[in-house]
Nucleic acid binder design. Structure first.
Lengths: 214, 214
DNA sequence: GTTCATTTTTGAACTCGGTACGCTTTTGAG
DNA sequence: CTCAAAAGCGTACCGAGTTCAAAAATGAAC
């Protein structure tokens, strides 16, 4: 009855099962596309009942999108070192990602990452799921920004800034993914990122200016 | 065989059927919430077969979200009078909306609008649908901005600006809806909008500045 | 090694959104 | 009135996700 810290056979098996399911799903998705694979097929391939699959992954989408949950701006801002600014630390984060792409979501080999992205980019359902994820991240960032010192309750500024920031980040990521899928190498995608990160954050900091205002 | 312009009985009946379905759906949604109503119930209430319902509305969501499709920034920017700027015309649009709320999506009485919004705000599925709609509008706006004179192909600026603009607009709208549902009157929501529109567009034009940058 | 409570897995039946197919009814043009 | 097109209908079907009770696996105590 008392749970030992022992990391028994149970835990190990569970992790193994989850991995098996994930890999079976990924293999099928890469082969035939997200929308042309049913969950029972995945379950069969992983030698598991459908019900069991849904115990590990609440939705079909989560089979693909769970590993993409990384790269959430809110925690980055919340956990930044003292003396740095929210925007500054985000700029640095993406600058670093451009210099070392693949340092982001850890999924294994470059080849694997590219396959995985292609799966996402080719399914409207997954793209929509991605965007839903981003919406969540936007709200989290708004919360973090609203908790900054000097922000008064009722001020819409945190929400507005969070919306701008996550919007821009989404565009950067979309470009990165596209470069990755089209170009075929992390290095190329990183170059793309490097080319655009500074511009994007400058735009955020200094405004659109007279670019589209007259 | 040749379709007359006559607006025959056929067309009238079709419009009537669509309206009947829409109203039956709205009544049930208001009564019991979007997620607690099935499409067959709606079909029964509208005296129509399920398959017919889906001929008029491709998804359950579209029963609610179709009328919300208005207020798309892309056409506003594309059709602006010469000599005006994209951002300027959008600012003017929302300024006008703040002065005369209810001038936006035309749905009938104030009471109806509020009920309709409450239905949306209380369903995560509909909220997500809303966001999907916004994503589409963002991409459209990016296209329009990319077509402006002086923009070079490959420049990410249109996408970045579009993301910022639609993000900010989403926040304005969300606040507007919330004020409407909470406050209960278009006037109050309009006041809320008036209080924030200028701030939001100033932020877009002049940037976040040192607000969150140090 | 046996016992027994707890956890995990399983199959089958179910709900709901959405589609396919074939059929009947309604409409409008000639 | 005739006839082709359009609209509606019923039914059976699909896939994602849930419910439930029964079966199997695990781990701890003896």
């Amino acid at each position: 009855m008392v749970m030992a810290e022992h990391e028994g056979l149970r835990e190990r098996k569970k992790r193994q099962t989850k991995l098996t399911i994930e890999e079976a799903a990924m293999r099928l998705f890469v082969e035939r596309g997200f929308d042309n694979v049913t969950v029972v097929e995945i379950a069969e391939a992983a030698q598991v009942a459908k019900v069991t699959l849904f115990k590990y992954f609440p939705t079909k989408e989560s089979l693909v999108l769970d590993p993409a949950a990384g790269d959430n701006p809110a925690p980055i801002v919340a956990a930044r070192p003292p003396g740095t600014s929210p925007l500054g630390v985000l700029r640095a984060h993406y600058r670093a990602l451009a210099a070392d792409p693949g340092g982001g979501p850890a999924l294994g080999t470059e080849e694997r990452v590219i396959k995985w992205m292609r799966v996402i980019m080719e399914s409207p359902a997954l793209l929509a799921g991605m965007h839903r994820l981003l919406d969540q991240q936007r709200d989290e960032l708004a919360c973090v920004l609203a908790a900054e010192p000097g922000v008064e309750p009722g001020d819409l500024t945190p929400q507005l800034v969070a919306a701008q920031v996550t919007g821009v980040i989404l565009m950067l990521k979309a470009g990165f993914y596209q470069a990755l899928v089209a170009g075929g190498s992390l290095a190329e995608a990183g170059a793309y990122l490097a080319r655009n990160v500074e511009h994007a954050f400058d735009l955020l900091e200094h405004g659109i200016g007279d670019l589209y205002t007259r």
